[in-house]
Amino acid sequence: MSVELGGHIVVTGTNRGIGLELVRQLAEKTGVEAHIYACCREPEGTTAQALRELTLKHPGKITLIKLDLADEDSISAAVQTVGQRIGPDGLNLLINNAAVNKPDGMASLQNVRKSDMMDVFEVNVTGPFLLTKMFLPLLQRAVSRSKDKGDEMSCRRSAVINVSSLAGSIEKCPENFHFAHIYPYRTSKAALNMLTRCQAEDLSSQNILVMCIHPGWVRTDMGGEEAPLSSEDSVVGMLRVMSSLSRKHTGTLLDWEGNTIAW
């Protein structure tokens, strides 16, 4: 099954889990004109072996980019590298997927330190903020060169997708807090949701779509073995949702099945 996505696509946090699966399915399901820029902290390290194998399986379609979202200089260098490779076309889709949770396991009130809160916020909120800000000229360029006319919005034209979480919903917190305290992760995703709403308002006049998507509770290193959803099924749903997005979806939080989640 193909997806209605294409052009130049940047994905962060691609060495494992949902990010790796996003790269795999995008490489398999998009047309020959699509190119994926797969970002991770150590593209030459042992943790990126599966990612490097994907680049060999899809020669010419995936470019590995070194990116550490906790390092502003690394973000700037990654944006510059991608910009040089993209050329005049612009960036069609930025998927801010990378995220961390500290400390490992149940990050309850008693065992969370100030440094945990700050480290998680830096990667999960400040990182996507800076990356979107620095990529904005390339996102704007994609709008100007798009065949779509008027005020149309889509992930084929120019869009920012922030991978958020149900755990960041303030309204839903009483329903699920008991089995996942994770203070730093929850508060960072709530902040990412507000960042998304702000950017959506800011960029709507430029026809750049910005929204959040919840991938579900997925069996990854972060999600754990008890999670009911596989990375493959989650990403199938996420890409289906991304393919269907339009102006009415900018500034929203949807799950991998397209259902609206309360802020």
Rank of each mutant, 00 (worst) to 15 (best):
A190T: 09
L192N: 01
L192Y: 03
L192M: 09
N193M: 06
N193L: 02
N193V: 04
N193W: 00
M194P: 02
L195H: 01
L195E: 03
T196N: 14
R197W: 07
R197H: 01
R197F: 02
R197C: 06
C198F: 04
Q199E: 11
Q199I: 00
A200G: 03
A200C: 08
A200T: 05
E201D: 08
E201P: 03
E201W: 00
D202M: 14
L203W: 11
L203H: 00
L203K: 03
L203C: 05
L203P: 02
S204F: 05
S204P: 00
S204V: 08
S204E: 04
S204D: 07
Q206S: 14
N207Q: 06
N207R: 02
N207Y: 03
I208V: 11
I208P: 02
I208E: 07
I208Q: 05
L209I: 01
L209T: 07
L209S: 08
V210F: 00
V210T: 02
V210K: 00
V210G: 06
V210R: 00
V210Q: 00
V210C: 04
V210I: 01
V210M: 02
M211K: 03
M211C: 09
C212W: 04
C212E: 10
C212H: 04
I213V: 15
I213N: 11
I213E: 14
I213L: 15
H214V: 07
H214W: 02
P215L: 12
G216V: 08
W217E: 08
W217A: 11
W217L: 12
W217C: 10
V218Y: 07
V218G: 06
V218P: 02
R219W: 04
R219Y: 01
T220N: 13
T220V: 12
T220D: 11
T220S: 15
D221C: 01
D221T: 04
D221W: 01
M222P: 02
M222C: 05
M222N: 08
G223T: 10
G223D: 12
G223L: 10
G223Q: 12
G224H: 02
E225I: 04
E225S: 11
E225F: 02
E225D: 09
E226T: 15
E226G: 14
A227K: 04
A227W: 01
A227F: 00
P228K: 12
P228C: 14
P228W: 14
L229M: 15
L229S: 14
L229E: 13
S230C: 12
S230H: 13
S231E: 10
S231Y: 00
S231A: 15
S231I: 06
S231D: 09
S231L: 04
E232C: 06
E232I: 04
E232R: 13
D233V: 05
D233F: 07
D233R: 10
D233E: 15
S234A: 15
S234N: 13
S234C: 13
V235G: 09
V235Q: 09
V235A: 10
V235T: 09
V235M: 09
V236F: 07
V236I: 09
G237R: 15
G237H: 13
